[in-house]
């Protein structure tokens, strides 16, 4: 069951983003930014977490989940450390994603040559 929920919720978020790509002048980069910010705001409004509880990876894997993760990190850090937590939590929560992308991306650049589009 959790696979079906992950599939349709994750798919739906992507399908909605496709509307932005195809029907607005928003470039892909802007759509990504929009999703992350939306995720953080929905997280703060206690809307995103229930969705994620229902859909699992269907909500955490899309970039909106990344936004929610950032918010969660900041909130937890504020609860624990007070004011300085605002500066601490975001990067801590997103550390795995950003480090993995940077490290693997860099390694790929050492191994691979640029290739033509097909």
């Amino acid at each position: 069951m959790d696979y079906i929920n992950a599939f349709w919720v994750g798919g739906l978020i992507c399908a909605l983003a496709q509307i932005l790509l195809d029907r607005t002048k928003l470039m892909p980069g802007r759509v990504m930014v929009l999703l992350v910010c939306t995720g953080a705001v929905l997280g703060a409004l206690h809307i995103y977490q229930p969705i994620q509880d229902y859909a699992g990876a269907g909500a955490s894997v899309p970039l909106a989940g990344f936004g929610n993760l950032l918010w969660k990190g900041v909130k937890e850090a504020v609860d624990k450390e007070g004011f300085i937590g605002i500066f601490l939590g975001g990067f801590k929560a997103s550390a795995v994603g950003i480090s993995a992308a940077l490290v693997f991306g860099y390694l790929a650049s050492l191994i691979c040559e640029p290739k033509m589009k097909k």
């Binding site: 992350v36 910010c37 997280g43 703060a44 990344f66 918010w71 850090a77």
Partner: peptide, 18 residues
């Protein structure tokens, strides 16, 4: 930009929360 605006948005939200 994704990291900048993600971090900034969560910072603003965190500030309001604080």
């Amino acid at each position: 930009p994704v990291i900048l605006y993600g971090v900034f948005t969560s910072w603003v939200l965190g500030f309001l929360y604080w």
